[in-house]
Design a protein around this nucleic acid. Structure first.
Lengths: 247, 247
DNA sequence: GATAAGCTATCACGTAACGTGAGAGTCAAC
DNA sequence: GTTGACTCTCACGTTACGTGATAGCTTATC
């Protein structure tokens, strides 16, 4: 009952070779293989493929997509919500681009003048997508300092820190709908503070500041759900910084 | 007074290697070279770089960007307006994606059901970006027929036809602000009809239909500017089909 | 004016995500 | 039972840079 490569390719709008490639690298292995050796894709495979394409649209390399989706902790619902907010972020950047082109058209007509910085102010997409937001929120110096300090760490240190953040993010994500006073929530929050301290050693004052902000927020004690959602965004920002500096 | 590679790279948010690469392939050659052999970029170089990045954002390969920008008929103002409308198109597709993710989240929660087609209805970005619009406007059959017929042409035929379209597009673009009764406008319009006939030989009925639509439109005789603008879009659609089928 | 720090230059090989045939087997329809 | 449309697996090609390696340039500092 599975679909063949061309059927999938036509449905989705990708090439047959792409499906072959995804199979080769183990990203999307068809559920079944016919007696003649044909790949047969199930409905679940299609859902996975949809996930892959969402991630690809967001610019993730296939290797990382595979790591994320094959992780035992992978949760589709959670991934979709993450992708959703990242797509909104992407639209925000696209809107910046559009505004930049509008300005450039005016400037080319001689109606307005633009500095060299302004000529490229819409191109922050080429950097870390969260960096601009971080700069707006915490100031340039804090972000530059953080980047530099992270850059000075060894690859092993960076990776270890990144994995720690991953772990905490996952445990907090799993606790979003639980009582904030539960043991698990307390443990996760404890880990979170340990992580912040660790980051503090590398002078990531910006992140520390944001952490404190959340602690001071009364939602912290009132509504773990909203808190969790805001925290997820914070963690995502932080992880993006690592992702960009790693590898 | 020129800027060095790193200064440009930091300003724009790209790597030094990228600038080297663009120089290597002749896409962006610095205006000047210092006595020590350093590349020195002028303000005009920066404007060109901005153009390049706009095109890149829209998914054009560097080779084609070079061809377009080095063409003697290249007009920056015109290019910016084209890029603007293509960015709007891109945002439309991104909005489709976002809507798709929203639906998928609901479907994952079990709130709604989705067919396999619907699961990928937001991914038309992976095909010809204008094809969906063409399908909406002219129907699936016309587009499929056109694509098939173009696919059956030899590479030489396709290329020749594409160059013809290019020529006419350029001459019409240059005539946008002129009197429709002028000799040049009449000549361009004459060429346009010859092209439509030629396309007719390959059964591009969809394009013929659109052409006829414009001829019947009373704006044709009243406002060459609006006509030209609509035509530009039509030509762009057509050229995109060729671009996709060529090479 | 020597020397270190930070940029820059040119090879040249690496890589990611497929594209593009080549040659051979499979499947459905007439 | 033979087309015609699909499918398979190599295997090399391509695009847009990344990533050192090695060597020259420039500026600040002693």
């Amino acid at each position: 009952m599975g679909m063949t490569v061309k059927q999938v390719a036509d449905l989705v709008g990708i090439s047959v070779r792409t499906l072959h490639h995804y199979d080769e690298i183990g990203l999307l292995t068809p559920a079944d293989i016919s007696s003649g050796g044909y790949r047969l894709y199930s409905d679940e495979d299609l859902e996975q493929l949809q996930q892959i394409l969402f991630y690809k649209e967001l610019g993730f390399p296939l290797k990382r997509i595979g790591e994320m989706m094959h992780a035992p902790s992978f949760d589709r619902q959670e991934a979709l919500e993450l992708q959703y907010s990242m797509l909104l972020e992407k639209r925000r950047r696209l809107d910046n681009m559009i505004a930049l082109v509008e300005q450039t058209i005016q400037s080319a007509k001689g109606e307005i003048e633009m500095t060299n910085e302004e000529k490229f102010a819409g191109f922050d997409f080429s950097r870390n997508p969260y960096e601009q937001e971080a700069r707006d929120r915490w100031g340039d110096k804090a972000v530059d300092d953080s980047n530099q300090k992270i850059g000075n760490m060894t690859k092993e240190e960076q990776q270890a820190l990144g994995e720690d953040m991953n772990k905490i993010y996952r445990s907090l994500a799993g606790l979003r709908h639980q009582d904030p006073a539960s043991d698990e929530a307390q443990a996760a929050i404890g880990e979170w503070f340990r992580l912040l301290n660790k980051m503090g050693n590398y002078s990531l004052d910006a992140f520390k500041g944001l952490g404190q902000m959340y602690v001071d927020d009364e939602r912290f004690t009132k509504n773990i759900d909203q808190f969790g959602s805001g925290l997820a965004k914070f963690m995502r920002n932080a992880m993006a910084v690592f992702a960009d500096n790693r590898q």
